[in-house]
């Protein structure tokens, strides 16, 4: 399954790069922004109040955003680990950092205290989201473009990308070396929109205490650094159903994907 996920990630990254280069060369009229579901949220206010789209956002953004909400209600944040090219970049970087720094998990070199980690995951991402939506909804412009790692990385030096945009991307990548998936965990505005839906997502991972050997391989394999071995079911809104934990688990049937069951213990948040 991890090989299939890698194929998905490679295909999306390749498609986004191709779309960006083709648009930059004038061979296509469809820019990489067209496929960004966050653009759907940015333009939602304009669409529902005036029946018009903001800036370069269009119906594809809105439809993909709605489809993403439905996906999250069923398969949690699967989008982040199976589709999102920015998530892919930061996950690959986290894997590289793990090898470079010879670590066994994704906690990073300087892991944050759980309380700080939780506060940043919610507070900082909500702040980023509020600033972007307020700016977009009042100006009608996609003001975030120059700071958006997706647009900077895949638009082939698109409109609004300045030299400092690359510095922003470089800074985020540097931050990602110290704090794995720093963008996804602490800054991604789409991530915080999906988070409450993901918490209630239907599909989840269940750990069988009967089969589990308590080796902790699942904890170490989780890119989101969730404590899977401490719960009967993973209910965290941050679980991306990447299934790296099930692939790493040495005990068959110890960790499986299930539909919700009533009366199970609370999982990691």
């Amino acid at each position: 399954m991890q090989r299939l996920r890698l194929i998905f990630q490679l295909a999306v990254v390749a498609a986004a790069l191709t779309a960006g280069v083709r648009f930059a060369l004038g061979r296509s009229l469809v820019s990489v922004e067209t496929y960004c579901p966050f653009g759907g949220l940015e333009t939602a206010y304009s669409f529902f109040t005036r029946r018009q789209f903001s800036c370069s956002a269009g119906e594809a953004n809105l439809a993909l955003f709605i489809a993403l909400l439905v996906l999250t209600l069923v398969a949690r944040k699967a989008f982040c680990s199976w589709v999102c090219p920015v998530g892919t970049l930061f996950e690959w970087e986290a894997r590289l950092a793990r090898r470079l720094f010879r670590r066994h998990d994704f906690a990073g070199r300087w892991p944050l205290a759980p309380r700080v980690d939780r506060a940043l995951k919610v507070g900082l991402r909500l702040l980023v989201l509020a600033v972007i939506l307020a700016a977009t909804w009042t100006t009608g412009e996609l003001v975030f473009r120059g700071y958006d790692p997706y647009y900077i990385a895949f638009s082939a030096h698109g409109h609004d990308v300045q030299s400092w945009s690359y510095a922003v991307l470089g800074g985020l990548l540097l931050l990602g070396l110290a704090l794995p998936l720093a963008w996804c965990k602490y800054l991604c505005p789409l991530g915080v929109v999906l988070w409450p839906l993901s918490r209630g997502g239907a599909l989840r991972l269940a750990r069988s205490s009967h089969h589990c050997t308590g080796c902790g391989a699942c904890d170490r394999a989780c890119p989101q650094d969730l404590r899977i071995s401490a719960a009967d079911q993973v209910r965290s809104g941050e679980c991306t159903l990447c299934l790296a934990c099930t692939a790493a688990c040495p005990s068959p049937q110890a960790l499986e994907l299930v539909w919700p069951r009533v009366g199970s213990n609370r999982g990691p948040r």
Binding site: Q52, F53, A57, E59, L62, A63, I66, A67
Partner: peptide
């Protein structure tokens, strides 16, 4: 993803 692409055909609105 397929539903999103099909849905984009149904929600056409001008900029």
């Amino acid at each position: 993803a397929v539903a999103g692409v099909i849905g984009s055909r149904l929600a056409m609105a001008p900029s």
